[in-house]
């Protein structure tokens, strides 16, 4: 600490025990506000100024007419959306797929990071880390086409294997039951390695002394894992989970779109693909904004709700 220069000791060290006025608090934290300022300005200009765009959900927005020239239609877009005979099917598909992802994909990078953390050969660890993060860079189009190559009934390796082993052919690509597992498998394959990076960074921060002390106490590998490693990344896991809840109605458009076909559409249709077909291809901005607004409201409720639950159970949550 001897490197730290002594600057204005008066301000930061004077701490009257009595309650301070707001003004003195603000003055005490002036440097913090200076640090906060650029970021806050960014959010104001690039996130909050364009926020008027949400209002077009209540319009029949036409780019050429602009915000002030377009007609106001009240809640018509929402009515159309909720009255849509497909609404509940879309909601169900979206939520089930999200649940699959949270249960099966979300833990994958954590487990993998813990396994990697147990590896003591640095070269092996680095090599594995580097290899598993490669698929993140493959486009979804390629992933979908490789999936086809493996799973097609016209000579796909997996398909052939299954029919040899079980004596019957399963058409994974058009099957209603296999659609969701297939999507989750793709995600696990593609994003697990990438997802470990964050946890490995968190693990890098664990104090090695804690392990030494545990070993002295006679703790085995499992005890160390449970008592030291896992708790040290717990808050990161909780935050990621909370933020993930906010995206419960987002399934990622491209992957689903690429894996959808006439025979599995019934389970494959989700809000994101629906918005694509009504909003983007048909150029109906207002309608897709309305759907987006619905998703956002659900997302905010879920984020703050799960954050509340997390804090109730003693976690620090996102705040």
């Amino acid at each position: 600490m001897e490197n730290v220069p002594v600057q204005e000791p008066v301000l930061s060290t004077v701490r009257p025990a009595a309650k301070k006025t707001i003004f003195t608090k603000l003055k005490r934290d002036k440097w913090l506000y200076l640090l906060l300022f650029p970021g806050a300005l960014y959010f104001l200009v690039f996130k909050y100024v364009p926020m008027w765009g949400i209002l077009i959900a209540f319009q029949d927005y036409q780019p050429y007419l602009g915000f002030f020239g377009s007609h106001w239609v009240g809640v018509d877009n929402f009515k159309n959306f909720f009255m849509n005979p497909d609404f509940f099917r879309l909601l169900k598909n979206t939520l089930i797929l999200s649940a699959y992802n949270i249960f099966f994909f979300f833990p994958a990078p954590i487990i993998l990071a813990l396994l990697l953390n147990e590896v003591r050969k640095a070269v092996f660890k680095k090599t594995v880390q580097t290899l598993i993060y490669v698929p993140h860079f493959m486009s979804m189009v390629i992933v979908a086409s490789i999936t086809y190559v493996f799973f097609t009934t016209e000579g796909g390796i997996v398909s052939e294997l299954v029919s040899h082993l079980f004596g019957r052919q399963i058409d994974f690509l058009t099957s209603l039951t296999w659609f969701r597992p297939l999507i989750v498998m793709q995600t696990i394959w593609k994003e697990t390695g990438w997802g470990t990076i964050l946890f490995l960074a968190a693990l890098a921060g664990v104090d090695a002394q804690l392990y030494e002390a545990a070993i002295v106490d006679g703790a085995g590998r499992w005890r160390q894992l449970w008592n030291i490693t896992l708790p040290s990344i717990r808050s990161t896991i909780v935050i990621l989970l909370i933020l993930r809840m906010g995206a419960s109605l987002d399934n990622g458009f491209e992957q689903i779109f690429l894996m959808t076909n006439a025979l599995n559409r019934q389970v494959a249709d989700v809000f994101d693909t629906y918005v694509y077909s009504v909003g983007i291809t048909q150029g109906s901005f207002s309608y897709s904004t309305a759907v987006g607004l619905f998703k956002a409201i659900v997302g905010v409720v879920l984020i703050f709700g799960s954050n509340f639950l997390a804090r109730k159970s003693g976690e620090s949550g996102i705040f």
């Binding site: 603000l26 906060l36 364009p50 926020m51 949400i54 901005f285 987006g292 996102i318 705040f319």
Partner: peptide, 27 residues
């Protein structure tokens, strides 16, 4: 920090609510 929670709330809010492509373009 005074105002911290307000700012954090606004940040989280902006994660889910966005103005969209055209308004951002105009900014």
């Amino acid at each position: 920090l005074i105002g911290r929670n307000t700012v954090l709330n606004l940040v989280v809010f902006s994660m889910v609510f966005g103005g969209g492509m055209i308004p951002t373009f105009l900014v």
